[in-house]
Design a protein around this nucleic acid. Structure first.
Lengths: 148, 148
DNA sequence: CCTTGAATTGAAGTTAACTTCAACTTGCAG
DNA sequence: CTGCAAGTTGAAGTTAACTTCAATTCAAGG
């Protein structure tokens, strides 16, 4: 068995066949076709799907995932090195998200308890709003007090 | 100024007025009405909205948030203690999500690099699938090797 | 061959979480 | 008073990420 049908891919990846077709329409996946126009996947595509699933679990949109996958070589099967490069790229996103969540975890209770959840002030809620965040009150979750 | 209009709430919370109305329809928020049927909010509602925003950032659905908020007293303004209780409840969710993401961060590159992203085996991708996870290959992200 | 379980397509439906619209009604500054 | 920004409602529209459907074609075992 050299290639896999869409049904086999669905079974092995846990992603519905309809979703695989959707991913193809969206440009995240590409499959060769048989003479009769049926999709035939290579085993390497399972890894691609794995990556998509992981990224989604981390809360990344298909749009962004497509962009990331676009960095993989098109002409050859991606190597471990290719995947590693891509993965370490995601590591940064993960680091960021983790950092936010850790600070959130550490501060949430106190933050609400102390009244800092005043929306105007708490950077947890207004991560982008640097002006509002400045000086007015506790601004610890997203922008911890340390740097700058 | 004792109460706030929906426009003021929107400005102060960063949540659009249409969203506040939507939250009310969905039972996450409740506002008193003037004689002319306009909404009037109390300052305490800003905290409620803050909680909604935080929970959403953590990836919790409005459905779940509504359930959580249902645990707050209806007859009186929630106290710090009420909020703290609720927050520490979320702490657990946060802990879980953080734990998953940390293991993900620590293993992703190696996982993809080593070929463990075979979908059948990697628990990172099949967190629920204890059968598939058993014994076949590296199963480290979601269910770390330690317990059991 | 033939049957039958998989595949194919385009189009339409689904869910969450909102936003936008149209057609009014309120409420406060002057 | 009055004008007009701000508020109200129900209904319909939007986006992401899929699923479902109908009509039809493939492919592989017997």
């Amino acid at each position: 068995m050299e290639t896999l049908t869409i049904g086999e891919m669905a079974a092995r990846s846990g992603v519905a066949a309809s979703a695989l077709r959707y991913y193809e329409r969206e440009g995240l996946l590409h499959a060769a076709r048989t003479g009769g126009n049926q999709r035939r996947y290579e085993r390497a595509d399972l890894r691609r799907i794995a990556f998509i699933k992981i990224a989604q679990q981390v809360g990344i949109s298909l749009d962004e995932i497509r962009e990331a996958l676009a960095e993989l070589p098109e002409n050859r099967t991606p190597t471990k090195a290719d995947w590693s490069r891509l993965s370490s790229h995601w590591r940064h996103r993960l680091e960021e998200r983790i950092a936010v969540m850790v600070r959130l975890r550490d501060q949430l209770t106190g933050c609400i308890g102390c009244g800092c959840l005043s929306l105007q002030r708490c950077t947890l809620i207004n991560p982008r709003d640097r002006l509002a965040a400045r000086g007015t009150g506790p601004q610890m979750i997203i922008n911890p007090p340390a740097p700058e």
